[in-house]
Design a protein around this nucleic acid. Structure first.
Lengths: 201, 201
DNA sequence: TCAATTCTTGACCGATTGGTCAAGTGTGTT
DNA sequence: AACACACTTGACCAATCGGTCAAGAATTGA
């Protein structure tokens, strides 16, 4: 669906995506019909199919954009930072902040994981995120700053804690992202056991 | 939908639930129609609505059963264990094992989180899990074995790592649960930083 | 001004959905 | 045998779904 779009066309397309994101996140992908989307914008049904060749393609487009956007935020944030552990920390904080500013998109990513047809696209983006994290982890291991365990496991543990804390404390309980990020960083770096490495706050 | 069921009736009900679990997990909740479920079992449509008053109620029933079953496994496993840290470790290992033996149910729980109508039921079960974990965490803090941070955060971090590693390494990559559990326990307890507390394996 | 192109309309389509129900059959009890 | 009740059938229903398309409106570039 590569159409030549005028500025007006691009704006329409954005409207459709933004409204679809809202409805998909709040009501679910399947329960939200194309009819509902176009009605919500007060336009005819043909408009939808002018910009997207199917409902499924719209969702995939949202998914792509989401993953790209988060990654851009990450890369921009860690630019010029040398220490790999510091890069991991910044990555966690950036994710937390981005996540708090894009609550709807979180839900959509989670849904994508539950339907076979969206899994390939989802994995593609997640693999990128994991590879990014693994790069820092490996470097940290070489420097002796990170425990010498399979970097793959470590990378997933980082993303796991971050995603879970984001979901619960940001989106369910509405806590400020800075606070949640602090907790995530501590738990990722030092685990839950009492220790004298990082004094209790 | 409280019917008096004969043994035959109970068996039918189980068949319906088991087959629905399989199809929901592999094909998605919405894309799996009631017609498909009864066809797969070779029975008429009325059978479905004899045992469940709607498709939604069937799903909620599956969700309840799932959460109950995992919790029972947990409680049985930690029975008689004194040390709270040890109880947490056993909890992680039990979850990992249970998760590897019930891959389908994992998917369903994940889906439930993406649709408003299933969230209340889902939360109820998860709150129980969190409270269980928090009890051990609090006791660990009192004993000075666990860092003095909000037990709520710690409990979620534990579940976050466990869920993420289970999803990726068990279900996507088919690794043995014992191995994944080892990694999860280490990362939960000690974090990712290099340390002399737990020697590198 | 005029033609090309982008954009919009909304009636329409076949397929499918979750759910109902009148009419049965199977089974156990008395 | 006869009755009650658990169970099963499958045609049927209104509603809704994702998607199409001929027709026309609005913009654009020459």
């Amino acid at each position: 669906m590569n159409r030549r779009l005028t500025p007006r066309g691009r704006e329409r397309r954005r409207q459709l995506m933004d409204y679809a994101i809202e409805r998909f996140a709040e009501n679910g992908y399947h329960p939200t019909s194309v009819a509902e989307i176009v009605q919500g914008l007060g336009v005819g049904k043909g408009v939808f199919y002018w910009y997207f060749k199917s409902k499924e393609e719209l969702f995939l487009e949202i998914l792509r954009e989401t993953q790209l956007d988060l990654r851009r935020a990450q890369q921009q944030a860690i630019e010029g930072v040398d220490d790999p552990v510091k890069r991991i920390e910044i990555g966690i904080r950036t994710t937390m902040r981005w996540s708090s500013e894009h609550a709807h998109l979180n839900r959509l990513v989670q849904f994508a994981a539950t339907e076979e047809r969206f899994l390939p696209a989802l994995r593609k983006g997640q693999d990128v995120a994991i590879r990014d994290a693994m790069r820092h982890v490996k470097e940290g291991i070489e420097r002796g700053e990170i425990r010498d365990t399979d970097p793959d496991y470590i990378a997933h543990a980082i993303l796991g804690i971050t995603a879970q804390l984001a979901r619960v404390f940001l989106h369910e309980r509405g806590q400020p992202w800075e606070q949640v990020a602090d907790a995530a960083v501590t738990l990722v770096l030092d685990g839950i056991l009492a220790t004298d490495r990082s004094p209790v706050g």
